[in-house]
Amino acid sequence: MSIEVRNVSKNFGTFAALTDVSLTVATGELVALLGPSGSGKTTLLRIIAGMEDPDSGSVLLEGEDATTQRIQQRKVGFVFQHYALFRHMTVFDNIAFGLNVRPRGLRPSKEEIRDRVMRLLRLVQLDRMADRRPAQLSGGQRQRVALARALAVEPKVLLLDEPFGALDAKVRKELRRWLRRLHDEIHVTSVFVTHDQEEALEVADRVVVMNEGRIEQVGTSEDVYHHPANPFVYNFLGDVNLFHGRVENGQPYLHPGAEGEGHALVFVRPHLLDIQHEPSGEHSFKARVTHINPAGPVVKVELISEWGQPVQVNLTQERYRELRLQKDASVYVIPRELKAFIE
């Protein structure tokens, strides 16, 4: 089922949570709402679910206006950051809840409910946990139960609010790959909220970058990462070095004292900077090494530029060994790619 959000605004008191937001999600798509705290992403998700009413604008589900529909009528599955499992029920009863509360005429028979719950438990790989209580499960298992519970009522749309936010880093990575595979299997239109750019880029078909109640950019992982629409998106999606500069004949230049006409903000990701012992090319500048962290797949080198600005460079392990870098060494930093936004 497709989702269409049209010109939605929402205020909490004097705080503008959403300002004139419009968004379309196609049937079967997996979309991430990505942004920092307070960017309005959770509010947008809750408005789509019907848990929050927009001050203005409308929400269309499958082309039909759902703005005034109650949550129960919208056929959305909602997964909460803290799972919201019913503590006093077993895993089985949690998943069966949505079927058990149906009016008698629409309720499947006991056997059908049993079959469906067991099928879902197998889908989320928890078929041996049916009789456990939520308190006896790990965080990752709980979130999978929550997902199975949401899927049990066969929702047209699956909405997930920071689904991995409460999990530790390792489980979180496993679970998000699993979610991607699950989505490829069942193809239910899904929207999930996250503040973790890596998670959004890895899992989603399309990423919606939000900031201060507005949408900054919508696009595939590649679009938003390699072709950011503005400085906020560039900054938010991964580490970045920010320099002052100017643009001349369409070419960006680093220029620490630049001001006025042609002044631009120049962004360079740490892995697009190289270090050499000699100056090279027109963009290179002198810097002093202040810290080296060689642990991990890349070596993170921190430097201070000749005009006193901290700079971060990520080198491959080979390049780092080649250079024989030492702390306090004087070197040259060579940008391989500059991205400029004119102010």
Partner: peptide
């Protein structure tokens, strides 16, 4: 006991984000 179950639940780390985000 009931509340401890509940907090053991959300104590998996990570700041709780407000609904306004």
């Amino acid at each position: 006991q009931h509340i401890i179950d509940q907090s053991a639940y959300s104590a998996q780390g990570g700041p709780v984000e407000s609904t306004a985000s």
